[in-house]
């Protein structure tokens, strides 16, 4: 009797949790299977099964929204030069044919962003922090790694599953199947939030940064120098606040980067170029106000 009451109550409560528009469709759902359905669907619609076209559509929404907060620096010469460097590094990755786009954006924070589909944004603060092109290559390589491994698509799918998306996914699975699910993914991407990728994703991206920089002919040890200098900065510096919300501390990453350098085959620390950085973000400062 008790169990029956509980089941009835939970059935009603579960229906109440569903979005109003899908309640009518959900009334016949088997309570015990509602979350399994969502989980299985998410599993079947895995990161690998999403087409490149869909990934690009999500990325486009993300980039447009991000540029609303972080406008690009209005300096065509700087942006063009950044793209030459970025594309060269991306060509060494597992997805060289993506439409790679790079842009320096207005923000004094030391940070860089990656959007699904191959757009990488680097802040003015970051350009001021790197001391040569090899260090910039490590930063760009890290972000390229997030894109090639589709880390953010995975986070998006997971997030949809664990939030209200669970009930929406269940309804979608009954009505429209994968098409509806994908529409949900793209729709959800319009909302930009902060989200920490897990530790392993950041470690993978750091490894990719070193690897891609080395493949592109840069000295991979520049990645360690960059991280060591980052670690030496005060943690409570405003410019680092956002970075440390979403990444492990630089101190932890110094250890990981050092270990990765030791595992490189085909290039060693100290072996490679460290060209002078020709992107003068400070000189572009005169146009900062114009960009806003």
């Amino acid at each position: 009797m008790r169990l029956h009451l509980l089941r009835s109550c939970l059935a009603a409560a579960t229906l109440a949790l569903a979005a109003p528009g899908i309640q009518a469709q959900s009334r016949s759902l088997d309570l015990g299977s509602i979350f399994d359905t969502a989980k299985n669907l998410a599993k079947s619609q895995s990161v690998g099964s999403m087409s490149e076209e869909e990934e690009l559509a999500i990325g486009k929404e993300v980039v447009a929204a991000t540029l609303g907060s972080y406008p690009p620096i209005r300096d065509s010469g700087l942006q063009h030069r950044l793209n030459q460097i970025g594309v060269w590094i991306a060509l060494q990755s597992s997805r060289p044919d993506l439409p790679w786009r790079f842009a320096a954006v207005e923000s004094d924070a030391i940070n860089a962003f990656a959007a699904p589909g191959g757009t990488i944004l680097v802040t003015r603060g970051m350009l001021g922090h790197v001391t040569n092109e090899a260090e910039l290559a490590c930063v760009l390589g890290h972000e390229i790694g997030h894109v090639t491994r589709r880390h953010h698509i995975a986070v998006l799918q997971k997030s949809l599953l664990v939030s209200a998306g669970a009930s929406a996914l269940s309804a979608a699975s009954k009505t429209g199947g994968s098409q509806e699910y994908r529409k949900l993914l793209i729709g959800e991407s319009k909302e930009i939030f902060n989200r920490r990728l897990d530790r392993s994703s950041e470690r993978e991206a750091d490894e990719d940064g070193i690897l891609l920089a080395a493949r592109a002919g840069y000295d991979p040890a520049a990645c360690l120098n960059f991280m060591q200098r980052l670690a030496a900065l005060k943690v409570d510096t405003n410019a680092l606040a956002a970075l440390y919300k979403t990444h492990p501390t630089a101190g932890e990453r110094v250890v990981d980067v050092d270990n990765s350098l030791g595992r490189l085959k085909g290039a060693a620390a100290g072996d490679g170029a460290r060209p002078e950085l020709t992107l003068n973000a400070a000189a572009a400062g005169g146009q900062k106000n114009q960009a806003r």
Binding site: Y70, N111, A112, H152, S159, S163, E188, I192, A242, H247
Partner: peptide, 12 residues
């Protein structure tokens, strides 16, 4: 963790 998405490190 207010869930989702492709851009990390943005000011909330």
């Amino acid at each position: 963790e207010t869930a989702v998405l492709g851009v990390r490190g943005m000011d909330e």
